[in-house]
Amino acid sequence: MNADLSDLNAFLAVAGARGFREASRTAGTSASTLSEAVRRLESRLGVRLLHRTTRSVTPTEAGARLLERLGPALGEVAAALGGVDELRDGVSGTLRLNVPVSAARLVMPAILPGFLAAHPGVRVEVVAEDGFVDVLASGCDAGIRYDERLDQDMIAVPIGPRVQRFATAAAPAHLDRFGRPEHPRALLDHPCILGRFASGRLTTPWEFERAGKIVRIEPQARLVVGVSGAIDLGVEAALAGAGVIHLFEDWLRPHLANGSLEPVLEDWWQPFSGPFLYHSSRRLVPPPLRAFIDHVRAKAWSEPAVTTPPDPAAG
């Protein structure tokens, strides 16, 4: 059964955005135009593709099945057309990335300015969130995640520092009052600043490692901030002496460097593998994404200086 390509794109945009108004902002057209396109597609197919309420739009069973196949198929069409444009005009088009808040703060600033300067024909859209999403269904070309168990049809490309650490720190005034811990379990006597993911899960337990020994603790939550948008509030609270914070070392480094935060248990800071850029192997790689991957691979990254404790048996 024939279906207009623009109607299929409209359905994909609305299903990915979970709403006509939201989809209209990214599609550059009106919500009414998208609504008419979806109705036209449903009429041609003879099935309802979307459940519509005043608050949300969700795919029906038929819509979900179409969505699963449609995203990769239209992606290949766009990539094929983009390849022709690339030969004619150089790399151009839109690159959509879904990244965690930490990567938006700590990884992307070292990559995006140079990439945009090298490819003036590419427009980049970055969505920062901490919930795992299907990048294809959400309309993104690729995502960034830490230590993900990716599906077999996903390709992972290292991006950012290959080794990072979680740092624990507090204001000197806080440590003067509560003491300077010599073992992770001593933090149980300190008020601490925790994060909460959108799923509701707290950023616990805190994990420490030294000489092959791992210690996990459940600290007291003096303050809880949302991971997706309020981490900087947690940092400011730590600077003001409200409690101990446990966060990416790169996030805290400026405050550690100027002395406004003091390292806590630095020889216990746990290293972990850096993030990966991932994309589907089921579709042609669009020219903007291919150019971005090449740019990422050419980037050199420095690694943190990991402290080795002088006495492995200590603690």
Score class of each variant (00 low, 15 high):
residue 286 P to T: 08
residue 227 V to W: 00
residue 210 R to S: 14
residue 270 Q to F: 00
residue 225 V to Y: 00
residue 305 A to D: 14
residue 197 F to A: 15
residue 187 L to Q: 03
residue 298 A to G: 06
residue 174 H to K: 08
residue 294 D to T: 10
residue 268 W to I: 11
residue 231 I to L: 01
residue 221 A to G: 04
residue 307 T to G: 02
residue 197 F to E: 10
residue 314 A to T: 03
residue 173 A to D: 15
residue 208 F to S: 12
residue 178 F to P: 02
residue 219 P to Q: 06
residue 215 V to Q: 10
residue 314 A to K: 10
residue 201 R to P: 00
residue 231 I to G: 01
residue 313 A to V: 09
residue 287 P to T: 03
residue 302 S to H: 14
residue 308 T to R: 14
residue 196 R to A: 14
residue 315 G to V: 08
residue 184 P to K: 12
residue 232 D to K: 04
residue 191 P to K: 13
residue 206 W to C: 13
residue 255 H to M: 01
residue 311 D to T: 12
residue 263 P to I: 05
residue 189 D to E: 10
residue 207 E to A: 08
residue 187 L to S: 07
residue 239 L to M: 07
residue 274 G to F: 02
residue 279 H to R: 09
residue 265 L to R: 12
residue 223 L to D: 03
residue 182 E to A: 14
residue 289 L to P: 08
residue 222 R to Q: 14
residue 186 A to G: 11
residue 208 F to W: 12
residue 183 H to T: 13
residue 208 F to I: 12
residue 205 P to S: 10
residue 276 F to C: 05
residue 290 R to K: 11
residue 213 K to A: 11
residue 189 D to Q: 04
residue 281 S to L: 07
residue 236 E to N: 11
residue 199 S to A: 04
residue 234 G to M: 01
residue 272 F to T: 10
residue 179 G to K: 03
residue 260 S to H: 04
residue 212 G to I: 10
residue 217 I to P: 06
residue 265 L to D: 10
residue 190 H to C: 14
residue 302 S to D: 13
residue 296 V to F: 08
residue 283 R to C: 13
residue 173 A to G: 09
residue 236 E to P: 03
residue 261 L to T: 07
residue 276 F to P: 00
residue 269 W to T: 07
residue 293 I to Y: 09
residue 281 S to R: 15
residue 242 A to P: 07
residue 186 A to N: 04
residue 237 A to C: 06
residue 310 P to D: 06
residue 208 F to M: 14
residue 242 A to C: 12
residue 187 L to D: 04
residue 257 A to Q: 13
residue 179 G to R: 04
residue 308 T to V: 15
residue 273 S to Y: 00
residue 239 L to G: 08
residue 253 R to P: 02
residue 293 I to T: 05
residue 239 L to Y: 06
residue 289 L to W: 10
residue 294 D to V: 02
residue 308 T to M: 13
residue 249 E to F: 11
residue 281 S to I: 02
residue 203 T to E: 03
residue 278 Y to P: 04
residue 289 L to E: 09
residue 195 G to E: 02
residue 186 A to Y: 00
residue 260 S to V: 03
residue 195 G to N: 01
residue 253 R to G: 00
residue 278 Y to E: 03
residue 198 A to E: 09
residue 247 L to R: 15
residue 313 A to R: 14
residue 302 S to P: 01
residue 234 G to D: 01
residue 227 V to T: 09
residue 183 H to S: 09
residue 275 P to T: 12
residue 282 R to I: 06
residue 186 A to R: 06
residue 188 L to A: 05
residue 250 D to W: 01
residue 223 L to G: 00
residue 199 S to N: 05
residue 298 A to C: 03
residue 283 R to L: 09
residue 201 R to E: 10
residue 265 L to W: 14
residue 255 H to Y: 13
residue 173 A to C: 09
residue 213 K to W: 03
residue 224 V to Y: 01
residue 239 L to A: 07
residue 253 R to W: 00
residue 193 I to R: 03
residue 209 E to G: 05
residue 292 F to V: 04
residue 215 V to H: 07
residue 312 P to W: 07
residue 265 L to P: 10
residue 313 A to L: 15
